[in-house]
Design a protein around this nucleic acid. Sequence first.
DNA 1: ACCAGAAACCTACCGACGGTAGGTATCTTT
DNA 2: AAAGATACCTACCGTCGGTAGGTTTCTGGT
Lengths: 196, 196
Amino acid sequence: MTNEAPSRRYAKGDAKRREILEAALTVISERGYRNSSLQEIAEAVGLTKAGVLHYFDSREDLLTHVLRERDVAYGDLFTPADGDVVELLRKAVVYNQTVPGLVQLYSRLAVESESHEHAGHDFFKERYQTLEGTLSESIRARQRAGQMRTDVDPVAMSHVLTAVSDGLQMQWMHDPTIDMAAAFDAVVAVLAPPAP
Amino acid sequence: MTNEAPSRRYAKGDAKRREILEAALTVISERGYRNSSLQEIAEAVGLTKAGVLHYFDSREDLLTHVLRERDVAYGDLFTPADGDVVELLRKAVVYNQTVPGLVQLYSRLAVESESHEHAGHDFFKERYQTLEGTLSESIRARQRAGQMRTDVDPVAMSHVLTAVSDGLQMQWMHDPTIDMAAAFDAVVAVLAPPAP
DNA sequence: ACCAGAAACCTACCGACGGTAGGTATCTTT
DNA sequence: AAAGATACCTACCGTCGGTAGGTTTCTGGT
């Protein structure tokens, strides 16, 4: 938990910490999650395992922070000022097709963090809750604007869109030829209101 | 690979093998996937690790066989004579809400088996392919019967329904209060043709 | 300029894990 | 009853994530 607060650190340490986060994703992308041990990541930044664990509480904690960084880079998908989260989610799906390492990492952690003891448990729990809130709100906005049928429950449909995003990635990892964007668009299209 | 063929075995061994498969699922259900080591499973059936590995090539191989058994138990979801796979999938989703251990195991393996070196890689690859085939065929049948809108691509929609099933389980593991059946039904409902 | 004190590391070690090698004991078939 | 396969064990291995406790390096306050 001490690592959570970025309060008191040297500039060198701060840079190294960021370097580790980047290296972790690079190693996963190049060698696969399965072969990305703490050792491998440490070597990639010229440290030992213990050296890396000085910055992060555990391997799980490190990998979770990589995902946190990603969400930051994704902009305000999870804290949108007023944007359409459905559209943001679609953009994320499209973008994910260019970063297989990130998809691997995300899928692994999303499943592993089911355990309460997992360092990323709270992160994912909150992420799913936030996503339910912002997505369902965007769906309601679309319904008010006449862009989406009104006979669907916004909360149920937010679960569906989240599931589609997560689930498509699982299939895509097994078969990268499937078109995630097309599949996502197929759902959204069906949600459009019938022509008068 | 030698373990795949159930040809030459004693009755005792056959029974033990089945006992191991059941015990593996029991251990996962009771202690969680995270704490289900080969050791734990072995102890549950009164064997050592090596004893269990006499029956299965590896831990991954064992767990994959547990899932194979499940698919057999699910009936002909993946090799349906003429049934509606969409409805079968819905039943599976409902049933899954009663077996959290199985959901944990399935989700873990589905993600881990992305690696080519994983013992369950081929199983999942084939599973996804078969599901795409049977699901898209059922969707086409529904379209012909006037039960489903015809402006959706059957293959894309089969990916969507599979993703919804997989993705809902991921969310459900983090928050068991969400209603997977309701969410699944919401998609299917939206796929119904508009009233004339 | 220097000197506490914190931060940035390292070496050495630990237990648990999955897996292997090679043996012994048990069963079944003939 | 012999023969051969099967069932299963003990002992061991390398790798993993993680910890304890040190040493070195930096930095801010006097």
